[in-house]
Amino acid sequence: MPPTETTAHPANIQYPSVPPGLKLLQLKFRVLSALSSEWAFKAAWEVFTTPRRLPLKTWETKALAHATQHWAQAESGRIAYYEWNGSGSRTVLLVHGWEHRASFWGHMADGLAKAGFRIVAVDGPAHGLSDGKRATLVSFAGAVQAVADAIGPVHATVAHSFGAACTAGVPVRFNQAIGGQLPRLVLMSAPSSTRKVAARFAHLLHLPPA
């Protein structure tokens, strides 16, 4: 006999309650939106472009102990970047995502350095030790561009999430002095649409369409 079809019922999922801080933000934007959509937009844009600087973890400190710190100058200010195995034959540039920093690449940097590569990882603007309090796609890409121009030929770039969107979407121009070709590019968890990211943010804060 053929198997009997059954209707699947979704399991009851218990979602955590909304954090008090988020409730306060939602209330703030309800009030601002009632007064002026322009004020509400400016305030929301400030929240959207302001990353938190999270405390340094122990494993990050250990990762940076084997790196040499350098600085590059971008329009957003001074940009910190780190180098592992400076004598490596080919350079791999690592670009972190939102609210991360160069030290988050510690494990990968160690493995690639042991494989003979020179590793460079950047602190995006308003991230890590780099200058600034706010970051956008354009300013972040500008910081990556400044580092890419400073370190010489880049054999490969690995970029994650927001960093992937900045690197490939703005985009960053690599190896301009030697023809502008980048042999290898790896994008991890790159957003498919910046518009959708903004829409999720607006939904989270209950922002009205205006």
Rank of each mutant, 00 (worst) to 15 (best):
A72L: 08
Q73E: 10
Q73I: 02
A74Q: 05
E75V: 11
S76K: 11
S76T: 15
S76Q: 11
G77W: 01
G77P: 10
G77C: 03
G77R: 10
R78Q: 15
Y82L: 01
Y82P: 01
E83W: 12
W84I: 05
N85A: 15
N85D: 13
G86N: 14
G86S: 14
G86V: 09
S87R: 13
G88P: 08
G88T: 11
R90G: 11
R90P: 09
T91M: 04
V92C: 12
V92E: 10
L93R: 01
V95M: 03
H96K: 06
W98F: 05
W98V: 07
W98H: 06
H100C: 10
R101G: 11
R101I: 12
R101M: 14
A102N: 06
S103R: 07
S103M: 04
H107G: 01
H107D: 09
M108G: 03
A109D: 03
D110W: 06
L112C: 03
L112V: 04
L112W: 15
K114P: 00
A115G: 02
G116V: 00
G116C: 00
G116M: 00
G116Q: 00
F117E: 06
R118Y: 04
V122S: 05
D123T: 08
D123W: 08
P125M: 14
P125T: 15
P125I: 15
H127D: 07
H127P: 08
G128A: 06
G128P: 11
G128S: 10
S130R: 06
D131H: 11
K133F: 13
A135W: 10
A135F: 13
T136S: 14
T136H: 03
L137C: 07
V138W: 02
F140E: 02
A141R: 08
G142V: 05
G142R: 06
V144G: 10
Q145N: 03
A146E: 02
V147T: 05
V147Y: 02
G152M: 06
P153C: 08
P153E: 12
H155F: 15
H155W: 14
H155G: 04
A156N: 13
A156M: 13
T157Q: 02
T157H: 01
V158G: 09
V158N: 09
V158A: 12
V158F: 06
A159K: 04
H160L: 08
H160N: 13
F162R: 00
F162P: 00
G163N: 07
C166G: 14
C166M: 14
C166D: 07
C166P: 08
T167V: 12
T167M: 04
A168W: 03
V170W: 05
R173I: 03
R173Q: 11
F174Q: 02
F174E: 02
N175P: 04
A177C: 04
I178W: 01
G179I: 10
G180A: 02
Q181N: 06
Q181T: 12
P183D: 12
R184Q: 11
R184C: 04
L185H: 06
L185E: 00
L185N: 00
V186M: 13
V186L: 13
S189Q: 10
S189K: 05
S189H: 11
A190H: 01
A190W: 00
P191A: 02
S192G: 15
S193W: 13
S193D: 13
R195M: 09
K196H: 12
A198L: 15
A198M: 15
R200D: 10
R200N: 10
A202E: 12
A202I: 04
A202L: 13
H203V: 07
H203Y: 14
L204H: 11
